[in-house]
Design a protein around this nucleic acid. Structure first.
Lengths: 241, 241
DNA sequence: ACCTGAACACCGTTCAAGT
DNA sequence: ACCTGAACACCGTTCAAGT
């Protein structure tokens, strides 16, 4: 009997037998948190549970892609705690934006997955949709404009964080050096503004950074982004017929 | 001599011998365009070039992740044509947003990759950074606020499209049916607004859609998103000291 | 219903060897 | 410099068989 199995056997010595779907998904989240989405593998999840790989196919139907989609949906549901916040629509939306970002920063390796995954799952997503629809209605949007601004707002909520937490290509730091060399060779004549701002921007701005937002958060950028979007939303709501 | 090799041998019968790095990256883009990022493999790229897998490791250093990062950077550079547009800063930024979206809609399978990839490469990215910095400066932003709004603007440019073109989990349409069933069971008491808007929103809004933006573009949402962001930016610029 | 055990096709990556 | 050919460890997925 292999070691992992033995551990599992002891852990399950109580009445509970077998493994639940929730356990599988939680284990998957743990694997992604630890190793990153790129190095995620079904066999690794199985190992961490002391179980044969084939077992997981019983709990989660479909292929690896479907598996990841369910993990993303589960995580989103798990991370997005109830947002029963009060205040006007503008401050509630801001709270939701901030809360989503906070949640993702606790699981940075999940962010790209969730951002680039189409599937959503069940109740908590419906609750989120309902809240956003409610606040946009309160702001004055209706009909087709309500739907358009719902899509815009959801994209705004998820968009910044997905980019902010994009993963660097590999763990080796050799490319970081090459990249910094490239930056130092940016032509002051062709790119005067970029050249001038580079000391302040290096590793703190898109395109010229080499570390992810999990190491170097872009707080100022996020605040500017949210405030700008909500300011625009308020202005456009005010000019509705 | 295997078939793919023979083809390649004939194709290279002219003076040109060997394979270039650009050829490798273009082949990779083709593979992603055709099969999607999830089903991308180094061996498949090698096959499409009539070459041994090991060959690719000579042209692109690092592992599969690094390979994908270079493909994403190359594609971004290739897709983002020069944007020597005239007009005030607001209309120029809008043009850039629209152009980026158009480019991504031509290679929808590349969008999630580019959106979730940290690495950028060389000149065209620097040009993009310079243009955005120039237009934001023109709007009145400077110093730390310039950097913050640069980050916000870049995220705004990429964010919506990344979500819009998120990939569905698998090619099987069985989950689409299950998903639509779930939608039809949304509780009208708990989610009144969502329930009411569902006929108009189904497959046309985040959370309640089952097809990607490559099949069902979210044009109205994108327009609302861009106009809202730029309106906010203009207002905040106007109130600068 | 839930899991084992083994099998198969495929992939990423390395490396010595060729030209 | 650039590519072959083979090798190895690992993975996704299936399936009959167990309980």
């Amino acid at each position: 009997m292999p070691k992992a199995k033995k551990i599992r056997h002891e852990a399950k010595a109580n009445g509970q037998l077998g493994i639940s779907k929730a356990e599988v998904l939680e284990a998957a989240v743990r694997v992604i948190d630890e190793r990153g989405a790129a190095r995620f593998s079904i066999r690794e999840v199985a190992r961490s549970l002391g179980v044969y790989p084939a077992t997981l196919y019983w709990h989660v139907r479909g292929n690896k892609n479907d598996f990841l989609a369910e993990v993303a949906a589960y995580a989103r549901e798990d991370f997005l705690l109830p947002a029963e916040s009060d205040g006007d629509w503008r401050s509630v939306l801001k709270q939701i934006f901030v809360r989503y970002r906070d949640a993702m920063h606790k699981h940075p390796n999940m962010a790209p997955l969730i951002g680039a995954q189409l599937v959503t799952n069940g109740i908590s997503s419906a609750r989120l949709a309902e809240i956003i629809l409610a606040r946009l209605s309160e702001a004055g949007f209706a009909g087709e404009a309500l739907i358009d601004n719902y899509n815009a707002t959801l994209a705004a909520m998820v968009g910044f964080v997905t980019l902010e937490l994009a993963a660097p290509p590999s763990d080796s730091d050799c490319w970081e050096k090459r990249f910094q060399d490239e930056l130092s060779r940016i032509d002051a004549d062709r790119f005067p503004l970029l050249h001038a701002a580079l000391p302040a921007m290096a590793n703190r701005a898109f395109i010229v950074r080499w570390e992810s937002g999990s190491k170097v958060p872009l707080d100022g950028g996020f605040t500017a982004y949210v405030d700008t979007y909500l300011e625009g939303l308020a202005r456009r709501a005010a000019s509705l017929p």
